[in-house]
Design a protein around this nucleic acid. Sequence first.
DNA 1: ATCGGCTCGCGCAA
DNA 2: TGCGCGAAGCCGAT
Length: 489
Amino acid sequence: MNGAVPEIRIRRLNDDEPNPAGRYVLYWMTSYRRTRFNFALERAAEWAAEFGFGVLVLEALRCDYPWASDRFHRFVLDGMQDNLEALSDRPGVTYLPYVEAETGGGRGLLEELASEAAVVVTDDYPTFFIPAMLAASASRVQVRMEAVDSNGLHPIYATAKTYPTAYSFRRYLQKSLPVHLERVPQTDPVSKLEGCPAPVLSESVLRRWPDASTLLTSVGLDLAELPVDHSVEPAEIRGGARAAKARLDAFLGSKLARYAEDRNQPDEDAASGLSPYLHFGHISTHEILGSIAQHEGWRPDFEGRPTLGKRTGWWGTSAAAEAFLDQLVTWRELGFNMAANRPDHRDYESLPGWALETLEQHSSDPRPYLYSLEVFEQGLTHDELWNAAQRQLRREGIIHNYLRMLWGKKILEWTPSPREAARVMIELNNRYALDGRDPNSYSGIYWCLGRYDRPWGPERPVFGKIRYMTSANTARKLHLREYLERYSS
DNA sequence: ATCGGCTCGCGCAA
DNA sequence: TGCGCGAAGCCGAT
């Protein structure tokens, strides 16, 4: 089939063919939990239009994945409510939100729904348990199954290379992005389904796997009844595509102009706050870029722009937007590039050679302080700035982007080994951060141990040639008065 | 306040 | 083969 979704974004997961005797196209939404600007949903809609079928959208939330908690459940459920609203009364589409009530409750659901599908389309995502889950599912599904990449502007499988620095990846992007930007996801892919019959679910399926729609709206869902970690409480910020859009608009309206100068200042509130929404797929990079373009009256035109990897001057937007796009595109997609091409990207051994070597050489240096995971977790170290950052993470599910670096550097300094430091960072980040369990969780954590960085002298205890940071210097440099007050306990 | 040295790997010019 | 340059650093010298 030749549709509008670029082939480079489509990965066949099995050798099966489409089944024209099916009743619908199944879209299994796992990572791009949105109904707009979504290549995977668009692909499902293309197949459906070809067969004259409707699309069945299955958005499931299981309860047994690592670090499942009230916090992540709440955020995902907010998103499901938005998707329910967005898809109800739309022709040609049926939305099935499913919330697993007990471990294993969802087992068999995908295969059951796939047994009546012509094609199964799902989201491609290069880390956490998703790649293994997709492979396992594809072997049990008897029709053609495809994973579609709607992660970012650069298709994650467009290169098999990894890049050792943001600089080299940026230079590559400056050459390769323009062609990919010619194909952007449709705003509303479901609109192709006018005239297609909305799939109807059988009583027996719904008896076994109840539709969670009423739980999402009128009845409400009691998280306390689910077997997930209740000690990680819901975050204050609301999840979902609507909240994401509101946050984007607020960012463009009052923060973007100050972004380049103030984004590293905790008290200035100039960061976008979009990363949790990006992580759960509640918003798309393409939509964000489109909104920036509209906001600035900018159109992509890269003719004659230097492709030397410089951080400014390539996009041709305002300086503020370029600073933001470097985060959103260069840095975010750098992490996806690593995850897509290095199956070991979560492991300590995936660090660059010079970093492994220098950390090894300093592995038996005495540590100035040693803390257990529990002391770190509660924010009870001797360092009030570090404690504040950890308390923000634990309480809000967010950690300030600059302080996150200091946070990780100090964990390296205060644990018995760099391997243990990585373990502590991964545990705390993935347990508490709304944007955890993401390719960029590992970029950020391993950056603290040398990934994407270069050696710095002079060699210091514990760190060796790894870039060193101190809380005192950080406090001197940053506006932190309100921040320290807010998270003082 | 600002500058250089610390140090590695890559792409590009030569 | 050499040169420039890079997520945000640190420290001591000027």
